[in-house]
Simulated scan of single mutants.
Amino acid sequence: MDILRKQKRKLKKQIRAASSEETNGLLVIWRQLKARHSALSRAESARKKRSQKRKNQERFIRDPFQFARQLFQKPKSGTFTVD
């Protein structure tokens, strides 16, 4: 993902500096890189989502009451100080 991102950035700079004849070819290459980057991003997101779902299922099976309690409990924010 990092490599593709860097390649896209480098190609964008080349497109800005290129002549009008070269711009069309570089845009085609940039669109291909963009499509590959998008596909990888979606795949990574799906992988993370599956992993999170599996972890949640395991937590639920281990202790359903604790899992449900954590779902509806507000997260604590800030710090408590006494003057």
Rank of each mutant, 00 (worst) to 15 (best):
I15K: 01
E44R: 14
K13M: 11
A46W: 13
N24P: 00
R16P: 02
L40Y: 06
A39R: 13
K49S: 03
I3Y: 04
R62F: 09
K55G: 08
S45H: 14
M1T: 10
F60E: 00
K10W: 07
Q14S: 08
V28D: 12
E44N: 09
L11P: 01
I29F: 06
A18F: 04
K6A: 15
L4S: 00
Q52R: 08
A46N: 14
F67T: 00
R5A: 10
L27I: 05
A18C: 02
E58D: 05
I61K: 13
M1H: 06
R5N: 06
A68K: 10
K8D: 08
Q66F: 13
S41E: 03
E58M: 13
A18L: 10
N24Y: 05
A39H: 06
E44M: 09
L40A: 06
E58K: 06
R54V: 01
H37D: 15
H37M: 04
T23R: 03
K48D: 02
F60N: 01
T81F: 15
Q52W: 10
A39P: 06
S51C: 05
Q14A: 02
D83E: 10
S45F: 14
G25I: 13
K48H: 08
K10V: 06
Q70R: 15
I3V: 12
Q32A: 13
R69N: 12
Q57P: 00
F60L: 08
S19M: 02
L71E: 11
L71T: 12
T81G: 08
R42E: 13
T23I: 12
R9M: 12
R69M: 12
Q14W: 11
L33K: 01
L11D: 00
F72G: 04
R42C: 02
R36N: 09
P64E: 04
F65M: 08
D2I: 10
R50D: 07
K76C: 03
Q32C: 14
A43K: 14
R50T: 14
L71K: 11
D83I: 11
S51N: 09
G78E: 06
I61D: 15
R54Y: 00
E21W: 07
L27T: 02
P64F: 00
F65E: 14
L26Y: 05
L26F: 01
L4T: 05
S38R: 12
K6D: 07
E22S: 07
R47Q: 11
F80P: 00
R31I: 02
E58W: 01
K34Y: 11
I61T: 11
K10E: 11
G78P: 04
L11C: 03
S38V: 12
N56F: 04
G78V: 00
R5E: 15
R16A: 14
K34H: 15
